[in-house]
Amino acid sequence: MENDLKLKLEQLHQRVDALKEQINTEEATKNAFVMPFIQAIGYDIFNPTEVIPECICDIGTKKGEKIDYVIKKDGEPVLIIECKHWKEQADAHNSQLHRYFHVSKSRFGVLTNGLVYNFYADLERPNIMDDKPFFTLELANLKDSSIKLLEKFTKQGYDFTGILDSAEDLKYIKAIRNEFEKELQEPSDELVKLLVNRFFEKPLTASRLASFKEYARRALSNAINESINSRLKSALNINEKNPSKSEPPEVTSVDGNMESPKFITTEEEAEGAQIIKAILREVVPASSIAFRDTQSYFGILLDDNNRKPLARLHFNFTKKYLELFHNGKDSGEKKLLNSLDEIYQYRSELLTTVANYRQKGGPEELSNEKENSA
């Protein structure tokens, strides 16, 4: 079921991406993007007892107020949806949804622009919608964990208790992570005192506290960087024959202290690089394939040589591209990727790129390559 839902969402993303520039109104956004989403999670958009559009909901003295969609299961409302034009932010107009939520029997609300879906609950106060969503689904950045949670909202897999449990987990994990990120940037007096009092027995004066705050910032940054480097080594298999070629460089300050990295290799970049590596190992040994991450792309090189790019992954934007160099040009040819599996479609181009470099290298390089492969 998860794979089926993922396929539907990927197809919907392609539709949204292709049509959005022609969608000029909120109503068109609802019809072209949001209704197909409701259909994708299993509800019959043509059944007025299951999907109720423009549902009248009186709010106090305001009569005739309408919710864009009310989704019902077994006659009970399970989800209310408020829609905005796709060019508007999906988190900028939650006051209206907040009012609807208060008079609805549903425990979950969605605010969407057709591209991003923000899911809300009432975890803090019963029947009053939380100010922040506990779950956000982006069609342009589908994650397996997001799809797994969305399954609990589908008609077939609706799981009220499971959603509430997940909502609470996500809400507080996100809150703790936000606080942790703040501490990484600027450690608070409370955190510094908590850590320092465990090993420093002298009085903590104001000047010493200021010094220890800087020490704490550097220490936390060091720990994060070392964790990142360790995970990348494992993900990219750089502990093979020549690990030094692919090891990501550490970012240091002038005085040699570690600072936060300017870029971090994502899981998708690591997985895409591994797919390309698996293809290229048909003709070259693993030690000849190097990885380099930059702020604008993730590069795959032959012999760790900048003049021999094999491919580049442009995954830092909404659309993901694979850049190929099979034509022997300095600038590559970009191919749109809807999924990482599509990289396999360019196997012949990747192998052609290697062949072009080897032909330029001459018989001696080819001979050395055969010896290394052996």
Rank of each mutant, 00 (worst) to 15 (best):
K143W: 09
K143Y: 03
K143G: 15
D144K: 10
D144I: 12
S145D: 11
K148R: 14
K148H: 03
L149A: 04
L149M: 06
L150G: 03
K152W: 02
T154G: 09
T154L: 03
T154Y: 05
Q156L: 09
Q156Y: 05
G157N: 12
Y158V: 06
D159R: 06
T161F: 13
G162V: 07
G162W: 04
I163D: 05
I163G: 07
S166F: 03
D169C: 09
L170H: 10
K171W: 01
Y172L: 07
Y172M: 01
K174M: 07
K174Q: 15
A175C: 01
A175T: 13
I176G: 06
N178Y: 05
E179D: 14
E179M: 13
F180T: 10
K182G: 01
L184Y: 11
P187Y: 01
P187E: 10
P187C: 07
S188L: 00
D189Y: 03
E190T: 09
L191S: 07
V192W: 00
V192Y: 01
L194R: 12
L194V: 02
N197Y: 00
N197E: 11
R198H: 07
L204M: 15
T205Y: 06
T205F: 06
T205I: 00
A206D: 12
S207K: 15
S207Y: 03
L209V: 07
L209F: 12
S211F: 13
F212V: 06
K213S: 05
Y215R: 07
A216L: 06
A216T: 15
R217D: 03
R218Y: 08
R218K: 13
R218E: 06
N222K: 14
N225P: 00
E226P: 07
N229H: 14
S230R: 10
S230F: 12
S230N: 02
S234Y: 13
S234V: 15
S234Q: 14
S234D: 15
A235V: 00
A235H: 13
A235Q: 10
L236N: 03
L236C: 05
L236W: 08
I238Y: 11
K241G: 08
S244D: 11
S246L: 05
S246N: 11
P249N: 11
P249A: 11
V251D: 15
T252H: 04
S253D: 15
V254M: 08
G256H: 01
G256A: 01
N257H: 14
N257A: 10
M258Q: 12
M258D: 02
E259A: 14
E259N: 02
F263H: 14
F263C: 06
E269N: 05
E271F: 08
E271L: 06
G272Y: 02
G272N: 00
A273L: 04
Q274W: 05
I275T: 09
I275C: 04
I276N: 01
I276L: 02
K277C: 04
A278Q: 13
I279M: 03
R281F: 01
V283Y: 01
